[in-house]
Simulated scan of single mutants.
Amino acid sequence: MRTIARHGALAAAGLLCLSALTACANEASSTASSGKGDGKGTKVKIMVGGLDKVIYLPAMLTQRLGYFDSEGLDVELLSEPAGVQAETALVSGQVQGAVGFYDHTLDLQTKGKIVESVVQFSHAPGEVEIVSNKASQKITSAKDFKGKKLGVTGLGSSTDFLTKYLAVKNGVKVSDFTPVAVGAGPTFIAALEKGAIDGGMTTDPTVATILDKKAGKVLLDMRTPEGSQEALGGPYPSSSLYMQTDWVNGHKDTVQKLVNAFVKTLNWMSTHSASEIADKMPADYKQGNGILYAKAIGSTLPMFTKDGVMPENGPETVERVLKAFNPNIKNAKVDLAKTYTSEFVEKAKG
């Protein structure tokens, strides 16, 4: 969901700007440290890289099922259109947790920020490479990315990461195509229909809407473990709850409650149909078409774990993918053991 040198400058600027928001950051930190919210329980703020995206569905579903409340938590879910923005909110101290792709933990480590996934929602990216009808004859595989404009949710996002990897894997240099930040949902669809992009990487429900409108075609489908294996060579742990390690170590009781709630949700999802899950979600997520929304959930369900456990060899796959195109990671030693922890998931399972 990343241009490398260009992103480095943008990310640095973004972090400086957000770091200046000391009032917001200090408020978030003090609220969580005190363990008090507004009387409902321990207050925790979590930034999600798109609350209405199916790949991050466990965040809102956990709240709708009442599992945060049952754990004595008052969780405030916030939303940004791209995972990289959720990452920035986390490292700036505005929130205590981020729901986004696990690969950000590796990227951040090379920048001196130690964060870790505390519960892994998925073992596949849940992403789909879509091409416009007009470009479908010219783009039949990732080998055809050269010279094309390809949509990503944001520069430096995991869709940006995966697009670059697919290009490099198929002999196309990252400088040979143009990544375009178009977000998701209506903005992605509009860019595809107007020709602002030739194709792009996105998730459900955007994928379902594009196919329903016959506005584009699927080029690569990574919504299943099999699709991840074919495109990326192994399981690709993606959506997760990740947090700054120092905060985790200082608030283990709160983190355990969060993980307990999410593991309950993942287990609930594994025993209920897409329609039943859709019925639990906010009505506006369906955008007036409940059947299409349930279909979108059904197409993406295979990406989710049932217990929040990091898939075996998943971190290694992510590292290999990032090293293929990201010089920051390629030339750095990443300590994978510091990018995730199984401590809380194991206790939640027990």
Rank of each mutant, 00 (worst) to 15 (best):
S92N: 03
A124S: 13
G49M: 02
T88F: 15
G200I: 00
D144P: 06
K338M: 07
F325W: 09
S70Y: 05
A332K: 08
F161D: 15
T159Y: 02
M47K: 09
D69T: 15
K36L: 11
K43D: 08
L78K: 10
S157C: 11
G185I: 05
I210L: 05
T153R: 14
T206N: 10
H7Q: 14
G288H: 08
L18P: 00
T163A: 14
Q109M: 06
S175H: 13
V180K: 01
G112A: 06
D212R: 10
V334C: 09
T187Y: 00
P179R: 07
I210Y: 01
A135S: 15
E87K: 10
H123S: 14
L18F: 13
A184G: 12
D69S: 14
V180R: 03
L322A: 12
D198I: 01
T339N: 13
I114K: 15
K43Q: 12
E276Y: 06
E343P: 03
I291W: 10
A231F: 04
A5T: 14
V44M: 11
T271Y: 02
K169P: 04
K217V: 12
S136K: 14
G233T: 05
R2L: 13
L65N: 03
R320T: 12
A86E: 04
Y236M: 12
K257T: 07
T305I: 09
K43V: 07
G83A: 04
T271A: 12
N313P: 00
A11R: 13
A11H: 12
Y242P: 03
L166E: 10
P315Y: 09
L232P: 00
V95G: 06
E312W: 05
G199Q: 02
V48Q: 00
T140V: 08
L336F: 07
E27M: 14
N326C: 04
K217F: 07
K306D: 03
L57D: 07
V248D: 05
V172E: 11
G156P: 04
E316C: 02
G83T: 05
K295G: 12
Q256H: 11
A9R: 14
G288A: 08
P235M: 09
A135W: 02
H7L: 08
T110G: 09
D103K: 09
A142L: 01
G50T: 08
L322I: 14
P327Y: 10
G100E: 14
T300Y: 02
I210S: 05
M243G: 09
L57I: 03
S34L: 13
Y242E: 01
R223W: 08
K333H: 15
A278C: 01
V180L: 08
V152G: 01
M243A: 09
K134E: 15
L150C: 04
K333N: 15
V152R: 03
P125S: 15
